[in-house]
């Protein structure tokens, strides 16, 4: 009787004890010292886990910064304030972050850009653009089915009249939309640059004209009139170099198709 009770109790109890001691010993023996600074850096990060820094999330970034794998200003969402806080924790100088926002390099709305066919498939830009390059006549332009809207963790993008529009005030420059866009027409532009050529078409001028009323036809008027020489025409598409542009606005006056757009900025 006594044995029937004692044996199982002592066996299970004994095994538990042995495993317990073993685990306690193992956790002491194989202890991995965590860097306190990682936790401190993690505290000051925005915690959106958006992955714009190139790491898997805020935890990965915190570890990367402490181990010197990236710069303290690597978090585009947190910007200057977070960079300062991190540099205080790590005791290094902070470098200024150029504040950027996403811009959709396309101006083709439902009215300005023609359609090739009626699309009634899945409401997703990737799916739509895999079908003959999308329903829009211009194969380079915005599909307008809102894949970027769903990708944006900050609700900064809206589809207005078949065209994705970024609200620069809400945009945190996490670049999730850039990665989600099948046409790759969302670019990060410094928010202080007001003028952007909102067209990505590499078609010939005549084709662009036929498909879309606001496309860049590569006439080169803007590059001639630009006092800083910030605009270059590559192929049939004008590009404004944000580092040189001085926001004078001469280009927008001469553009015959209104392909250059102004994004007002407070700075």
């Amino acid at each position: 009787m006594l044995q029937e009770l004692l044996l199982p109790t002592s066996l299970v109890g004994g095994l538990g004890l042995i495993f317990g001691i073993g685990l306690a010993y193992a956790s002491k023996k194989f202890e991995v010292k965590a860097d306190e600074r990682v936790a401190a850096v993690r505290e000051v990060l925005p915690g959106a886990n958006c992955g714009a820094c190139g790491f898997t999330g805020c935890d990965g970034f915190a570890e990367g910064v402490v181990n010197g794998k990236c710069k303290v200003n690597g978090c585009p969402v947190g910007g200057d304030t977070v960079a300062k806080a991190i540099s205080e924790i790590l005791g290094v100088e902070a470098e200024a972050v150029v504040a950027k926002a996403a811009r959709v390099m396309c101006g083709g709305t439902c009215t300005s850009c023609k359609t090739k066919f009626d699309y009634s498939g899945i409401e997703d830009c990737v799916a739509a653009s895999s079908l003959f390059g999308g329903p829009s006549a211009c194969t380079y332009g915005c599909v307008g089915l809102g894949t970027c809207v769903r990708a944006c963790p900050f609700e900064a993008i809206q589809i207005v009249d078949g065209l994705a529009m970024v609200n620069a005030a809400k945009c945190k420059a996490c670049e999730m939309c850039v990665a989600s866009c099948p046409k790759k027409i969302i670019k990060m532009i410094p928010i202080c640059n007001e003028y952007t050529v909102s067209c990505s078409s590499m078609d010939k001028g005549a084709t662009v004209r036929k498909n879309c009323s606001v496309g860049c036809i590569g006439c080169g008027k803007c590059s001639k009139v630009c006092p800083k020489g910030a605009i270059s025409v590559e192929g049939t598409l004008a590009k404004i170099n944000p580092e040189i542009c001085s926001n004078c606005g001469e280009c927008i006056k001469v553009c015959p198709t209104n392909a250059i757009k102004r994004y007002k900025c407070s700075c």
Binding site: L11, V12, S27, F30
Partner: peptide, 27 residues
């Protein structure tokens, strides 16, 4: 003590997983 199979095996598996986790973390 065959009737203790389930409870003892759970004990073993749980400790084992914990142990493997600690060792992996280190090495």
């Amino acid at each position: 003590l065959d009737y203790l199979n389930t409870i003892v095996f759970i004990l073993i598996i749980a400790s084992l997983v914990q142990f493997v986790e600690t060792v992996l973390k280190k090495f």
